[in-house]
Design a protein around this nucleic acid. Structure first.
Length: 431
DNA sequence: TCTGGGGTCCTAGGACCC
DNA sequence: TCTGGGGTCCTAGGACCC
């Protein structure tokens, strides 16, 4: 191999936590080892994480809970509601360890990170990956797979191979073209990163079945039928890097907070209460990012399931000035709600999206109105955030009072403890 | 009875401008 | 019948990700 200095691009590693949510539960409950375990989405709606044992029993990703309940009982599968306080904290611990292994790292999702492989003389990438894997396991108890290749998309393929082959010890490096080709021939086109259900169907109808077939497709055709994103994916599979490692994540462009209700809700007072709650959550996230929103979208929907006619309504509101204060955002949001709500309709879900975001620092002073009142508002919200950080979320909250039963609150019937983020729920160890 | 939530990017098409 | 051309900005919708 001829090295040509700057043209030689560094290898990319994808570190992927195995069955992350299940692994988090197992880290605090050793009795779950080697047993089938699943974790459910919000509202205990569908299966979003499965242990290997559960996968082998045929529990599919995304299966609604009510559809696999019989299987769960029959095979004595352990079930958990999703515990994001726990998973988020465990993720932060894993990421902190990974950061020690590379100067360039992108936190890609709650359970994945892309790292630039440091090129240390005399030490190969696979050894580096094994050390990294050992550290994460030692410090957090979370098993990870590592895939190494010249592009992110190929690193994804490598990580899959690392998980699938027990002989690989959780690490797979794809470097030689022959290895890459045979790996791609074994990957179905729908399993390629960036190819979803729609594109996969279209590709299959055109005789493109595997990732290897895709590398041989015509560029112009790919560009026309799958946009430039699709073409970039194809280039990446061929070894040309198109997606860089983004170590400084760009500021978010929108912030969303929404929930499906525990049970359908028709009472407008209860809907207002739910919406106010979601707006509070979104506003808190907004302030934590040091940002302001100039527009918000409110929506309510009956959902597409069941025989009843579905009704979805959404409204985008331009705010009079960039805001982050919860009470004002609630006031505007509820004004929007009044225009959306239809009497007699039972809704299943509501939410809010904050958009047209900007840095709070870059804020223009208000032309009309009092900046002193503004200042007071900012100090007030800061105080509320501090209290909630100290005493737990919801210690101080903004009410849109309702006498209605809290039917909209989500179901979480199988919740484990917040072992790492709440003093009263620390795990007990017996001698 | 019971089907998640939170994001990004890209394109097409319309409004609007000169 | 004919009815400019070129550009920007915005939004909705569709695709994707975990």
């Amino acid at each position: 191999m001829l090295f040509t200095g700057s043209e030689e691009s560094a290898a990319v590693a994808l570190v992927d936590c195995n069955n992350f949510y299940v692994s988090c539960e197992r880290a605090f409950d050793p009795s779950l080892a080697h047993r089938p375990v699943v974790v459910l989405s919000n509202n205990d709606g569908c299966v979003i994480a499965r242990s290997e044992e559960a996968k082998q029993l045929g529990i599919g990703m995304g299966t609604p809970f009510f559809k696999c309940r019989q299987q769960i009982i029959r095979y004595n599968i352990r079930v958990f509601s999703s515990n994001y306080a726990l998973y988020g904290d465990m993720s932060a611990r894993v990421m902190e360890i990974l950061r020690r292994f590379s100067p360039h790292m992108e936190e890609y999702s709650i359970d994945e990170a892309f790292l630039e492989c440091p090129r240390t003389p005399g030490s190969c990438s696979a050894e580096w990956a094994l050390r990294l894997r050992g550290q994460v396991a030692l410090c957090t108890g979370i098993p990870v797979a590592v895939g190494i290749a010249s592009t992110k998309t190929l690193a994804k393929v490598a990580a899959r191979a690392a998980k699938k082959n027990p002989g690989f010890a959780g690490v797979c490096e794809l470097a030689a073209q022959g290895d890459i080709d045979s790996a791609l021939a074994g990957v179905a086109v729908e399993d390629v990163w960036g190819i979803g259900r729609r594109y996969a169907g279209m590709l299959r109808r055109n005789g493109i079945i595997t990732a290897r077939d895709l590398t041989r497709a015509d560029d112009g055709w790919v560009r026309r039928s799958m946009t430039v994103r699709g073409l970039r994916t194809v280039m990446e599979l061929r070894g040309t890097s198109c997606f860089g490692i983004e170590d400084a994540p760009p500021a978010p462009r929108s912030i969303l907070s929404s929930r499906s209700f525990g049970s359908p809700v028709g009472d407008p007072a209860a809907l207002r209460e739910a919406l106010a709650d979601y707006i509070s959550t979104a506003a808190e996230k907004l302030r934590r990012r040091g940002m302001l929103a100039s527009a918000m979208q409110v929506f309510i929907t009956t959902g597409a399931h069941g025989a009843e006619p579905s009704h979805s309504a959404a409204l985008t509101l331009a705010l009079p000035q960039p805001l982050s204060a919860t009470p004002e955002l609630i006031r505007h949001g509820l004004t929007g709600f009044e225009r959306l709500y239809r009497t007699g309709v039972c809704y299943r879900k509501a939410g809010v999206v904050l958009t047209a975001l900007q840095e709070a620092r870059a804020r223009q002073p208000v032309l009309f109105g009092s900046s002193a009142a503004d200042e007071r508002g900012v100090r007030f919200m800061k105080a509320v955030d501090v209290i909630n950080a100290r005493w737990g979320c919801g210690a101080v909250s903004f009410a849109a009072p309702s006498k209605a039963a809290r039917a909209w609150r989500m179901h979480r019937r199988f919740m484990s403890g917040r072992y790492t983020t709440c003093w009263s729920e620390l795990p007990l160890v017996r001698a």
